Amino acid sequence: MKRMGMVIGVEPRMIAEYKRLHAAVWPDIIDLIGRCNIRNYTIFLREPENLLFGTWEYHGTNFEADMAKMAADPKNQEWWSFTIPCQRPLESRKEGEWWAMMEEVFHHDRSASLKTTRT
C-alpha cells in the first residue's frame, strides 16, 4: 500500500460548483476509483488560499497502468470535463502533472501501533 497526496488550486468563482459536483460523485466514477486500486480517497478545501488537497491509498501493483486505465475511461473523461474547469494547476508542478504530487514526510496510524495483550 502506498499513501499519496496532491495539491491544486481551485478557481474562486468555481468553489460552489466543485463542492456541488463532489457532494454527488457519479457512481461510475466511484466504481472506477475502486477498480483502479484507490482507497480512502479524500479531497480537502483550504480557503481563502483556494487550494484543494487530495489524499488516498494505492493498493495495486502497477500504478502507471491503473492511472492510464482511469484516464482512458470515457465516463471519467466526461467527469473531468466538469471538474477540470474548476481547477487551477500550480505553476510549480512537475511536467505531466495536473495535480502537483506531494512527498509524504510523516504518517502515524494509531491503530497499527496499538498492541493487544491478553492476560
Rank of each mutant, 00 (worst) to 15 (best):
K2P: 00
M4D: 04
V7A: 07
V7D: 02
I8A: 06
I8C: 12
G9H: 09
V10F: 03
E11Y: 01
E11H: 12
R13F: 05
R13W: 00
R13E: 15
M14Q: 13
A16Q: 12
A16Y: 03
A16L: 08
E17V: 14
Y18V: 08
Y18E: 05
R20W: 01
A23H: 12
A23Y: 00
A23T: 07
A24Q: 13
V25L: 06
V25S: 06
V25W: 09
V25K: 00
W26A: 05
W26F: 04
P27M: 02
D28Q: 14
I30M: 04
L32N: 07
I33E: 04
I33V: 15
I33H: 03
I33P: 00
G34K: 06
G34Y: 12
C36D: 02
N37V: 02
I38Y: 01
N40G: 14
N40S: 14
Y41A: 09
Y41G: 03
T42Y: 10
I43T: 11
F44N: 13
F44P: 02
L45P: 03
L45T: 00
R46S: 14
R46A: 14
E47S: 12
P48H: 09
L51G: 06
L52F: 07
F53N: 02
G54R: 02
W56R: 06
W56K: 05
E57C: 03
E57R: 10
E57A: 14
Y58D: 05
Y58S: 05
Y58R: 05
H59I: 13
G60H: 08
G60T: 07
G60Q: 03
T61N: 11
A65M: 02
D66N: 02
M67K: 07
M67F: 08
A68Y: 00
K69G: 00
K69V: 05
M70G: 04
A71H: 13
A71D: 13
A72K: 08
A72S: 15
K75F: 10
K75N: 11
N76T: 02
N76I: 04
N76D: 06
Q77V: 12
Q77E: 07
Q77I: 10
E78R: 11
S81V: 09
S81P: 07
F82L: 12
I84H: 13
P85H: 08
C86K: 01
C86V: 10
R88P: 04
P89H: 06
L90N: 08
E91V: 10
S92K: 10
S92N: 10
R93D: 11
R93M: 09
R93E: 07
E97Y: 11
E97G: 04
E97L: 10
W98Q: 08
A100D: 01
A100P: 00
M101Q: 09
M101T: 14
E103S: 11
F106P: 00
H107W: 01
H108Y: 14
D109Y: 07
R110D: 09
R110K: 11
S113C: 05
L114E: 15
L114N: 03
T116L: 14
T116A: 13
T116S: 08
T117K: 12
R118Q: 09
R118L: 15
T119L: 15
